[in-house]
Amino acid sequence: MATPDTNLGLTILLAEDNPVNQMVTGKLLEKLGCHHVVANNGLECLKRLKDDQFDLILMDCVMPEMDGLEATRRIRASSSHCANIPIIALTASAMESDRQTCMNAGMDDYADKPIDMGRMKTLLTEWAQRINPES
């Protein structure tokens, strides 16, 4: 359950294929007061974006069927309402070149795996303030 100081109130699309990572990240998001929906790959992510509204996407970079980089490129190239949604890369690749690859694909930020609770709280708090500056 979220405490008042961590109730970020974001609706997040979690694009992640690993069930353990889905569970761990989902619990972390709940603790931060965020609602989340899971997409198991990039194709599911694109479908979810057509069906629902999200404040932000947490995008795994390596997924089957369509990876996070290609999904991000397609989101950015679309003319839909989701073309400008913030996308945060989730990846175990921590090299600067990997970060740059994510940014070049159109992602807005970057978080290393395994996910650190403190880092994710800081990151999502910053994005929540950008998304809803009056809150």
Rank of each mutant, 00 (worst) to 15 (best):
A2G: 02
T6G: 03
T6Q: 13
T6Y: 07
T6H: 10
L8P: 04
L8C: 03
T11M: 01
I12M: 01
I12P: 01
I12R: 03
E16P: 03
N18E: 01
N18G: 02
P19F: 09
V20W: 02
V20A: 07
N21M: 03
N21F: 03
N21K: 09
Q22P: 02
M23F: 13
T25K: 00
K27P: 00
K27R: 14
L28D: 00
L29M: 09
L29R: 14
E30Y: 04
K31Q: 08
L32Y: 03
H35K: 14
H36M: 00
V37Q: 10
V38L: 05
A39V: 08
N40D: 08
N41Y: 09
G42S: 10
L43N: 10
L46A: 09
L46E: 05
R48E: 06
K50E: 13
K50M: 08
D51W: 06
Q53Y: 11
Q53K: 10
F54C: 03
D55Q: 05
L58N: 03
C61W: 06
V62L: 12
M63I: 01
M63P: 07
M63D: 07
P64R: 04
M66P: 04
M66R: 15
M66L: 14
D67Y: 03
G68N: 05
G68K: 00
L69E: 06
L69C: 01
T72P: 06
T72W: 08
T72N: 05
R73V: 01
R73W: 10
R74V: 11
R76V: 14
R76D: 10
A77V: 10
A77C: 04
S80A: 15
S80C: 09
C82E: 08
C82P: 00
A83C: 11
N84S: 14
I85Y: 07
I85D: 00
P86D: 11
P86V: 01
I88W: 07
I88P: 04
A89Q: 09
A89G: 08
L90V: 05
T91M: 07
A92Y: 02
S93R: 14
A94P: 04
M95N: 10
S97F: 06
D98Q: 06
D98M: 02
D98V: 01
R99Q: 12
R99P: 01
R99I: 15
R99L: 02
Q100N: 12
M103R: 13
M103L: 13
N104R: 15
N104D: 11
N104I: 09
D108S: 09
D109C: 03
Y110N: 02
D112N: 10
K113A: 03
P114S: 08
I115S: 00
I115G: 01
I115N: 00
D116C: 12
M117W: 13
M117G: 04
G118F: 07
R119W: 02
R119I: 09
K121S: 10
T122Y: 12
T122Q: 14
T122S: 12
L123G: 03
L124M: 11
L124T: 06
E126G: 13
E126R: 15
E126Y: 14
W127N: 04
W127I: 00
A128F: 12
A128G: 07
A128V: 00
N132T: 06
E134Y: 15
